[in-house]
């Protein structure tokens, strides 16, 4: 049981760090405690609400890591919920991206003159897409059936 879970525990740990760190970074930038271009303005744009969301997802993974370290099988539940959330928000940001794309390049709507795809290329999006790839590839690992 220990070895089988190695991959899962590492993933959980890694994703926990990613989501928590990036989430907090976005929040700090959003509230102007850090300058927009700290580390990278493009990869980690300021965003208060979105950053909080990432942080919460990171917290889910955090719980998972804690449970894993206790040797409890419950950690799997947290990893599962975590990746579902990651994918959900990935999809959400993707839909936002699509909507904005249509607004800017198909409809030429007001207020979208300055839009480029980069504007909507947010951490939640790329992290979510990567999570999706991981889930599709390693679905077995995440299954919760006894």
């Amino acid at each position: 049981m220990e070895n089988k879970n190695k991959a899962l525990t590492s993933f959980t740990l890694l994703w926990e760090i990613m989501y928590l760190a990036i989430g907090i970074l976005q929040v700090l930038k959003g509230t102007k405690f850090l300058p927009d271009d700290f580390i990278s303005a493009i990869l980690f744009p300021p965003e208060f609400a979105g950053g909080l969301v990432l942080a919460v997802v990171g917290a889910v993974y955090l719980y998972g890591t804690i449970e894993f370290s206790k040797g409890s099988v419950e950690g799997r539940a947290y990893a599962y919920v975590g990746i579902i959330l990651s994918m959900l928000f990935g999809v959400l940001y993707f839909l936002t991206f699509t909507a904005d794309l249509i607004n800017a390049w198909v409809l030429f709507a007001e207020g979208f003159e300055q839009w480029t795809p980069l504007v909507d290329f947010k951490p939640a999006l790329y992290l979510g897409l990567i999570s999706l790839a991981i889930y599709i590839g390693w679905e077995e690992e995440f299954r919760l059936r006894e």
Binding site: L92, T96, A99, N103
Partner: peptide, 22 residues
């Protein structure tokens, strides 16, 4: 978790509706 899901729901409602509204 609940709050993030709620936020997500409203956010999606507004952003995805805009092209249609246009």
């Amino acid at each position: 978790i609940f709050l993030t899901l709620m936020w997500g729901m409203f956010e999606l409602t507004f952003t995805f509706a805009t092209p249609f509204m246009e």
